[in-house]
């Protein structure tokens, strides 16, 4: 989702290019870059503001942006917004962290033992392609309507992207690097620690980033079905109570939450794979 927006302009990001460090860009070019990057968003926000005002859409169903922002501010001041955000965030993070803690080591293990991966990969592929939300009723049946089923759903949705990209990362390690390390007399353990693991890091992070997006996606949907708090609940209940401004406030918050989470993960990924050549 949001990752495509931030990743597309990668070639123009100065930090990606080691030779561009010293050369200061002319101010005009920087300004132009920011303009082109934000133009579409600004145009969209402008459309949101004007369309209801000029009667292009019914302002009952789509209030102008400024009114939504006021409603958002009201919710924020009243403390409700933060309560919902923190409810969603703590569920998403709990599930996400559990998934990372389980899936990365498991993925390494599966990939390192070839027969194990041959055995399990088809099953994992099946799980990954099973829409997590389809399992929500099952989780509710087993774990009840409370926190556990929601967190479990997030764990499920996050585990498979991480697992599979970890396996891919380990499997696609350049055989020549392995050969070079073996020729130096490194044993299997040192080989794993010094070559396989670092080589797999970028791929693992790709999976983690996908999991981050997935965690919010499934959580919000789960909160719409059965919850007393969280952004998904806020959106759904506002709609039911015809508090349309609050509904849009919730949607706006989710979008911001998603972008922020993705941005944080991308920054983390950059830090950990700074050695990588810029793609393309």
């Amino acid at each position: 989702m949001a990752d495509t927006l931030t990743r597309t302009p990668a070639p123009t990001v100065p930090t990606d290019d080691p030779t561009a460090h010293g050369t200061a860009r002319p101010l005009l070019a920087v300004g132009w870059l920011w303009f082109t990057r934000s133009a579409a968003i600004l145009a969209f926000l402008l459309l949101w503001e004007t369309a209801p005002r000029v009667g292009l859409v019914d302002r009952v169903f789509l209030p102008p942006l400024s009114e939504v922002l006021v409603a958002t501010a009201d919710l924020a001041v009243g403390g409700q917004l933060w309560a919902h955000v923190s409810a969603s965030l703590s569920r998403a993070l709990a599930g996400f962290v559990v998934a990372v803690a389980v899936a990365v080591p498991l993925g390494l293990l599966i990939a390192w033992y070839r027969p194990v991966s041959d055995l399990l990969l088809p099953l994992l592929e099946l799980f990954r392609n099973t829409a997590a939300l389809a399992l929500l009723p099952v989780f509710v049946l087993i774990l009840g309507i409370g926190e556990a089923s929601k967190v479990a759903l997030v764990v499920f949705a996050c585990t498979f992207p991480i697992l599979l990209s970890t396996v891919t990362g380990v499997r696609t390690v350049d055989p020549l690097l392995v050969k070079a390390a073996v020729s130096l007399g490194f044993g299997p353990l040192a080989l794993f620690r010094k070559v396989v693991l670092p080589a797999a890091v970028p791929s693992v992070f790709t999976g983690i980033r996908m999991a981050g997006a997935a965690s919010i996606l499934v959580l919000v949907a789960a909160e719409m079905v059965g919850a007393q708090s969280g952004l998904g609940y806020l959106i759904n209940s506002s709609q039911l109570n015809f508090q349309i401004h609050d509904m849009y406030a919730g949607i706006l918050s989710i979008a911001l939450l998603g972008v922020t989470l993705n941005g944080a993960l991308v920054a983390l990924e950059r830090r950990w794979s700074r050695w990588r050549t810029t793609p393309g």
């Binding site: 070079a180 007399g185 010094k194 070559v195 670092p198």
Partner: peptide, 27 residues
């Protein structure tokens, strides 16, 4: 088997991309 009494140099360098030049030599 392999051993440090022989040093191999490959056409495709086989450097660890996440290590600096110095750390590659230290490998």
């Amino acid at each position: 088997g392999p051993g440090l009494d022989r040093g191999l140099v490959f056409q495709q360098y086989a450097l660890l991309p996440w290590r600096t030049a110095l750390d590659n030599v230290a490998f």
